[in-house]
Nucleic acid binder design. Structure first.
Lengths: 147, 147
DNA sequence: GATGAAACCTAGCCGGT
DNA sequence: ACCGGCTAGGTTTCATC
C-alpha cells in the first residue's frame, strides 16, 4: 500500500487520540469527514492499522518492575514461541544476533516475582542460561513515530 | 485507585478493541452500558487508561529494522532524556542496573539508517560507547497483560 | 454506585461529482 | 478519489433507586 502525507497525518492524529471524530481527523488532514473515514478504513484493511487499543499504566496494574532478559540456548528456539507466550510477565520476545539467542522483555509486580519469572524462563526448552538487566527508571516508552 | 475484577475485564476488552460500544463492554463485565461508561471514565481520570490509540505496523511505515542498544556513559545521563527523545528512531530509553547505563530500543528503515542512529547516539552527551543487539525476528510484542 | 430512558451526536452508507 | 446528505445506532446525560 502507498502511504501518502495525508495518511501519515491521520495515523499520527489517531496515535495521539483514537477516539476523536472523523470530522476532526478530516480537518487535520485537510479532508472531509467522509474521505477521512474512507482512508482510515483502507489503512485498517491493509493492516497498517492493526487495531485500536488503550494504553494502560503498567504500574497501576501492579507491573512496576521492568527488566530485559537475555536467554542463551543450546538449540534453535523456534518452537519456544508458545512457551514464552504462556508466561504472562513476558511482554516481548525477539530472536537476536549477538551473544545470546533470545531477548525477552519482562514486567512483574515485585523483584520476587521477577525471580519466579526467571525460573520459568530457565524451564523453557533449550534455555541454558539467563542474563538479566533490571530497569531502574524509564525515560520514556513511545510508539513507532510516523515519519 | 482500587481496581476490581470488573475493571480488569473492561481493561482487557478495551486492549483488544477500544472501538467497541459500551453496551458490548457492559455485557462482557456483567454491567449496564451506563455503568460500564462510568467505570471507564474513572479509569481514565485515575490515569490507569492513559489514552486510546492505534497499533500501527512498524514495517508498513518503513521501520522494519529493530535493534536494542546499550549505552555506556561516563556521567549521569539524567539530562539526556531530551536528546534521546529528539532521535525519532528511538522508541524507548531506560536507565538500567548492570554493565551499561542506558538501554535504548531503536527502529529504523534499513541497517544504514541504524548506523546513522548509532552515530547520533554516540553524539549524545556523556556516551562513551555503544553495544548493539540486532533483532533477527520478533516472536511477539504485546501489551502488559491485565492479570 | 448502578440502572433505564431520552436527547444529542456520530459513524457508516449512499449516490453524485 | 473526494464530497455531501441520510439514517440507524451509539454516546452521554439525567432522574431514580
Amino acid at each position: 500500500m502507498t502511504i501518502d502525507d495525508m495518511d501519515r497525518k491521520l495515523l499520527a492524529a489517531l496515535q495521539e487520540d483514537a477516539g476523536q471524530s472523523y470530522a476532526a481527523l478530516g480537518e487535520i488532514a485537510g479532508l472531509s469527514a467522509g474521505s477521512a473515514h474512507e482512508r482510515v478504513r483502507k489503512l485498517k484493511a491493509a493492516g497498517v492499522i492493526r487495531r485500536t487499543t488503550i494504553e494502560v499504566d503498567p504500574a497501576a496494574l501492579g507491573r512496576g518492575v521492568l527488566a530485559y532478559v537475555l536467554l542463551e540456548a543450546n538449540a534453535w528456539m523456534g518452537d519456544s514461541r508458545e512457551a514464552l507466550l504462556d508466561i504472562p510477565a513476558v511482554d516481548e520476545a525477539h530472536i537476536i544476533a549477538g551473544p545470546a539467542s533470545v531477548l525477552v522483555k519482562v514486567r512483574t509486580t515485585t523483584t520476587e516475582d521477577l525471580q519466579a519469572t526467571l525460573r520459568a524462563l530457565h524451564a523453557v526448552d533449550g534455555v541454558t542460561s539467563t542474563q538479566t538487566v533490571v530497569v531502574l527508571e524509564s525515560f520514556f516508552e513511545r510508539q513507532p513515530a510516523v515519519v
